[in-house]
């Protein structure tokens, strides 16, 4: 169980990126974290995985706990060892390494050779296309294959919690569907908890149990996935649906006011 308790994050000690963010990821759940660009979603993930330090960021207030350990001052290495893996935004592959070496490096913190071998087969089972490409240099893979590879690479660490940062980025809708189906399977079959950051709110809420909406560094809304899917504001701002039948000018005004309330 992961718990963020009122955390505040600064970059370079002056740029306030998160103010009072609290959220929970219960064991075995899929939690969606939604919001527009710059809302602080990725910052929240980096605060959890410890990667903030690579960008001169730090949690200045509040705390992050995972399975009874306080992790907000830990080195990323030790956080990975506790079972949290972040799959970073934008498919950060090792392009000169082969697909199989990319996957193997995912198991870096582990020493149980026999089980690693089994997990490699398991990863190929989830992503059969990678098996055919195993000796290929990773840089030559297509975007979708690369995204599958980095998720597989994360899986190779046998995480208790996976932080996925925009797995749908730049992919064709049909591929997005395929990848999200696999994420759902991983959650169901391996029991891996998943914290999912997405711009694509529709697909994220379709597999998530619970969701949080962020704006300008704060959580502005949270609830079950069903509740969020039916929420008027979420519908309008994130799902691109709006109530029909209202006059345009009135709706614009209402939209503006509602938006303003959110951003405050």
């Amino acid at each position: 169980m992961l718990k963020l308790d009122n955390i505040r994050v600064f970059y370079h000690e002056v740029i306030l990126a998160l103010r009072q963010v609290s959220l929970e990821v219960p064991d075995g759940s899929i939690i969606a974290l939604l919001g527009s660009n710059g809302a602080g979603k990725s910052t929240a993930l980096k605060a959890i995985s410890g990667l903030l330090i690579t960008e001169a960021g730090a949690v200045s207030e509040g705390s992050i706990h995972f399975d009874g350990h306080r992790i907000d001052r830990m080195e990323p290495v030790n956080i990975v060892r506790l079972g949290i893996i972040q799959v970073m935004e934008g498919r950060r592959i090792f392009q000169h390494l082969t697909v199989e070496d990319n996957l193997k490096i995912g198991a870096y913190v582990r020493n149980d050779r026999a089980q690693i071998k089994k997990d490699l087969d398991l990863t190929y089972e989830y992503f059969p296309v990678l098996k055919d490409l195993r000796r290929q240099t990773a840089g030559f893979l297509s975007g979708g294959e690369q995204q599958m590879m980095v998720i597989g690479r994360g899986l190779m660490s046998r995480p208790k919690l996976m932080l996925l940062d925009e797995p749908s980025l730049g992919l064709a809708p049909v591929l997005v569907k395929e990848i999200f189906d696999i994420i759902k399977r991983i959650n169901a079959e391996e029991g891996t908890s998943i914290l999912l950051v997405e711009q694509n709110a529709k697909i994220a809420l379709s597999i998530a149990h619970h969701g949080y909406v962020m704006e300008t560094g704060r959580v502005v809304l949270e609830g079950s996935a069903d509740m969020l899917q039916n929420n008027e504001d979420v519908k309008e701002f994130y799902l691109g649906l709006s109530t029909a039948g209202e006059t345009k000018s009135y709706r614009d005004l209402k939209h503006y006011r509602r938006r303003k309330r959110w951003m405050a």
Partner: peptide
Amino acid sequence: SEDKVAAQSLGIS
């Protein structure tokens, strides 16, 4: 050597 941040995200010091 290819990507330090990604390496760190996998637990490489």
